[in-house]
Amino acid sequence: MNTEELVEIVLPGKVEPEGLEIRHGAVPVPGTGQVVIRMEATGVSFAEQQMRRGRYYDQPAFPFVPGYDLVGTIVTTGDGVEPGLAGMRVAALVKVGGWASHVLVDAADVVPVPEGVGAAEAETVVVNGITAWQMLHRKAHVKAGQTVLVHGANGGVGTVLVQLALAAGAKVIGTASARHHAALRAKGVIPVDYRTEDVPRRVRELAPGGVDAVFDHVGGRSAVDSWHLLAPGGTLVSYGSASTRDDEGSGSWPVLKLLGRVWLWNTLPNRRRAYFFNVWAGRAYAKNRFRTRLSADLTQVFAALKRGDITAQIAAELPLARIADAMRLAESGTVAGKVVLNP
């Protein structure tokens, strides 16, 4: 008899981290085409930090269970699913619902985790790895010998992005606070202190002709500066608005402003391009293509992890029940990599 119990973290509204609630219930039963994954690792990304403030641009109505991605083992399968999938360790990108001991997922949305890769290691490169890979290779098409600028080079996405860019043969300039510079230099990154240095001036010193790509999660003024730092033929990939995380008001407005700027920049008579990257783009109208691309790209990321092109940057591992501590640590700006949650 199955005596397992569902444990999940509920975000009831705009609350401080201590306001997150633990809820117990029955383990879900998979429907047709679905599987239940017993979570082994999930994590705190910037998306959940925004959701806690009600500022993630397309988050569901409160209350809901956050958790953008997870890694775990398939324990039960529904009708129409190959029964042999049970027992397989997989990763899934879910946007919400990952902060739970058991998660219901469409079987078509899971990606196998290679043998020899631990759950926490794999978790660090699910949403962060997919985001980094697709921005680097599907948007900016970075090649060996090019120079790229990565804002937040010590963060969850930034850590993966700089390593993938270096593996592609690019020269990497990365912004971060001074405490992270030694680690970035050890990776081969040229660090710039965004707290004490004039970032545009310093980048122009390092790349007088401009950079071939900028990856900007900051938004606001930073996105404008990033655009002007591009070399002819360069690409700006904007993928967030971290500078507005603690602002009041609409969470959609900063994104809409960015989208407007991107549209305007792309109408200018020059050879530069700008994108606003959304990992979910295309799912609504081309679900099968979206799934195929995500599976292929995450498989590439896992392969890069296994061969050592990228390393798992685990900032800390905490149990799900300590979600408030995990949230505060992730939001502190003092750690490098990803805060991982275990069951």
Rank of each mutant, 00 (worst) to 15 (best):
N2S: 14
N2Q: 14
E5I: 13
E5W: 08
L6G: 08
E8G: 02
P12Q: 01
K14R: 15
L20H: 05
L20A: 09
I22M: 15
P28L: 09
G31L: 08
G31A: 11
G33E: 06
V35A: 07
I37G: 00
I37D: 01
I37M: 02
M39V: 15
A41R: 05
A41E: 06
A41N: 07
T42M: 07
G43L: 04
S45R: 12
A47I: 07
Q49G: 14
G54I: 11
G54W: 10
Q59H: 04
Q59L: 07
P60E: 00
A61K: 13
V65Q: 03
P66E: 00
G67F: 09
V75W: 02
T77Q: 09
T77P: 01
E82D: 15
G87K: 00
G87W: 00
G87N: 01
M88R: 15
A92V: 03
A92F: 00
L93Y: 06
K95G: 10
W99K: 01
S101E: 09
H102P: 01
V103W: 01
L104M: 05
A108T: 13
V113I: 12
V113H: 12
A122I: 08
E123A: 15
V125P: 07
I130D: 02
A132W: 10
W133H: 14
W133S: 03
Q134C: 10
R138M: 12
R138Q: 14
H141L: 14
K143V: 06
G145D: 08
Q146M: 13
L149H: 03
H151T: 01
N154A: 15
G155S: 11
G158F: 04
V162K: 07
L166Q: 02
A168D: 10
A168L: 02
V172E: 00
V172Q: 00
A176I: 02
A178E: 14
R179Y: 02
H180L: 05
A182G: 07
A182W: 02
I190Q: 14
D193E: 03
R201Q: 13
G210C: 06
R221N: 13
A223M: 15
V224D: 11
W227S: 04
H228L: 13
L229V: 04
P232T: 07
G233K: 10
G234M: 11
G234L: 10
S238Q: 12
Y239Q: 10
A242P: 04
S243Y: 03
D246T: 15
D247W: 12
E248L: 11
P254E: 04
K257F: 10
P269Q: 01
N270H: 13
R271E: 14
R272I: 00
Y275S: 05
Y275M: 09
Y285Q: 09
N288L: 11
Q300G: 03
Q300H: 13
F302Y: 10
A303E: 11
A303Q: 08
Q313L: 09
Q313T: 08
E317C: 07
A321Q: 14
R322F: 05
R322E: 13
A330E: 00
G333I: 11
V335S: 11
A336F: 02
V339N: 01
V340E: 06
N342R: 15
